[in-house]
Amino acid sequence: MEKRVTFKGWLLPLCLIAPQVVISAIFFFYPAGQAIWQSLFIPDPFGLSMQYVGLGNFEFLLSDPYYRASFLTTAIFSTLVTLVSMVPALFLAVVADRLIKGAGTYRTLLIWPYAVAPAIAGVLWLFMFNTRVGVVSWYLGNLGYDWNHVLNDTEAMGLVVVASAWGRISYNFLFFFAALQAVPKSVIEAAAIDGARFWRRFWTIVLPLLSPTTFFLLVVNIVYAFFETFGVIHTITSGGPQQATTILVYKVFSDGFVGQDLGSSAAQSVILLVVVGALTVFQFKFIERRVHY
């Protein structure tokens, strides 16, 4: 039986949700509406004139093989970022959870990278892997491996994925760690008495109990990979070599702010909005069914 708490009257509940509604309206609905409106025009950069083109911007984009290819690049990139940021985070959280001494220090150190802004993280990683002065690329060179992400697309993709995922590991760690602490000890002890070893207990008890957290992080990390990794890509590869790391959101930026093509840029934002919306609905419809709360 579900428990419901109801308000008497309308005024108080309205007041309570008003700030959220106002913020969403100003910072989400208004700009999103403007993007949809702008996507129907080809304006000049200074806003002096506008040409109505209907769905012309969308037609232009979807008939461009490079734009279509950037969907695949985005899919690969966000899958990799999500995996690389979640799996190590879970591992570290499990290990930290078992620590008895020095757990505080360990946790603090693990959380630090989250404080680094994506663009700065990009510069740091670029510095380590710089083809000329990078420490890592120098060691790789000594081992006989010639690192060159400036021309090698796989290496470029690898570098932007790691640089984007690095800071997120901290964020994910925090959530996993909190969730692990919330797993009732009695259940685990009962399983241990029944003779289940660590990995067995992990797979059959801990992981299912972590599923709400994992699902939440999955959604949040995909959204992160789609939108917030812009700084990393901009500082490390600018979308290159060729178009190997041009993800959708980077193309929105380069068309809008390098090309001053606001019509195409707005149309891309709308497409991106639809894609992420669809993805989130999909996740809630199909993956959430496997989640136990």
Partner: peptide
């Protein structure tokens, strides 16, 4: 061509 269209 898009630039031309924007500045017609």
């Amino acid at each position: 061509r898009r630039f031309e269209q924007a500045n017609r």
